[in-house]
Design a protein around this nucleic acid. Structure first.
Length: 361
DNA sequence: AACACGGGGTC
DNA sequence: GACCCAGTGTT
């Protein structure tokens, strides 16, 4: 499929200039630090959702030096609730690398930018074009959708072959005299006009040459190959409180969901478990031994839907008569200071509003 | 190439 | 409930 670049690109730029009123705090930004920060926040994240986080990060860490020297936990606390927490870990690592190895100055060529942690082809192209005016075309979900529809191409966008094909086309269509403007324009166009659902085809400036529109296949494009599979997980957590109002928490390790965030004492099950069985089970015995403990509350069943998982679980409030002699891997912190630690949304839902007892059999 | 990784909006 | 969002890293 060949595309007349002069048509597509010129119409796109004209639309951007005359009809695109989408405003964002980082638009037109030239500081590579701010561009980078906004792009990482926006990976797989809607502009509306990332907006407040960007403002918070800029206020808290105005420069890359501020970010590089900040305690990790403080940065994670700022990221709390945004999801995909490896982005935060890589953000910290890259800030420290740039400050340590590049004297605080962002590298200014595509390959060096791409080599940084948390920066893939999309983010590297965004930074290269927005900050350094380099001719690299961004390929995000918007671009894939726009190009698939415009060319009427049913090649799946979530395959290696598809990405390669659309990336090549994106590079051809790029206006190399103003790559930043062009990249901004095509992403806004995808978000505002060529939307996933109910695109604004009847008023679209590209409709005359849009193959999907002309052949009435807009609703069928782009094509995705992979089917989403969901897994169910159950988490049973204990707020184990000592007489002096301290509780046990630990940091989750990498390799699973919520890496680097904190969690309460607890364990996971592949199947739902009755509260009675949780408390009677061997695992509870290993944790609490013969210690006399009081179960103050058992929460309702909390549930959270994620893209690839359904999380369910319950929270037990336990009061100890004496602190446990040792609880390997856990730290003991003041209950009042729990809000200084980043927790998954699932746990925060209960921490912020602990539902009182169900039955205390 | 396939899969894991959050949370939220829209229909 | 299904799909998608200014994707990246690991295996």
């Amino acid at each position: 499929m060949t595309v007349k670049k002069e048509d597509f690109t010129q119409l796109l730029l004209k639309w951007h200039k005359n009809e695109n009123s989408r405003a964002m705090p980082w638009k037109g930004e030239k500081d590579p630090y701010r561009i980078w920060l906004s792009e990482v926040i926006l990976q797989q994240t809607r502009v509306e959702q990332g907006w407040a986080y960007y403002e918070k990060f800029i206020a808290e860490f105005p420069t890359i030096e501020d970010l590089a020297r900040a305690p990790e936990q403080k940065v994670f606390k700022c990221w709390e609730g945004l999801g995909y927490y490896s982005r935060c870990r890589n953000l910290i690592a890259t800030a420290r690398k740039i400050v340590g190895d590049y004297g605080g100055r962002f590298p200014s060529d595509y390959e060096s930018i791409h080599a940084l942690k948390g920066i893939g082809p999309y983010t590297a192209a965004a930074i290269a074009s927005f900050a350094f005016n380099l001719p690299h075309a961004v390929v995000d979900g918007n671009v894939l959708r726009v190009l698939s529809r415009y060319t009427g191409d049913a090649t799946p966008i979530d395959t290696t072959a598809g990405k390669k094909k659309y990336t090549a086309l994106a590079g051809e269509l790029l206006d190399k005299d103003q790559p930043g403007i062009y990249n901004q324009a095509i992403m806004d166009f995808g978000a505002v006009v060529c939307k996933p659902q109910n695109p604004l085809c009847t008023s679209c400036v590209q409709r005359k040459d849009c193959q999907a529109y002309c052949t009435e296949r807009v609703g069928e494009l782009p094509v995705k190959e992979k089917v989403l599979r969901k897994r169910s997980r159950w988490f049973y957590y204990f707020m184990v409180e000592t007489p002096d109002k301290k509780v046990y928490i630990r940091q989750r390790q990498k390799g699973d969901i919520w890496a680097d965030l904190f969690e309460l004492v607890g364990w996971e099950s592949e199947e739902p478990v009755y509260p009675e069985d949780i408390l009677r089970g061997a695992a509870a015995g290993r944790v609490f031994g013969k210690q006399s403990l009081t179960v103050k509350y058992i929460s309702k069943v909390y549930r959270q839907e994620l893209t690839h998982q359904t999380i369910q679980g319950q929270f037990f409030t336990i009061h100890l008569s004496h602190p446990l002699p040792s609880l390997k891997g856990y730290i003991l912190v003041d209950k009042e200071k729990l809000n200084e630690y980043p927790f998954p949304k699932f746990i925060n839902a209960w921490l912020k509003d602990p539902t009182p007892a169900q039955s205390l059999f």
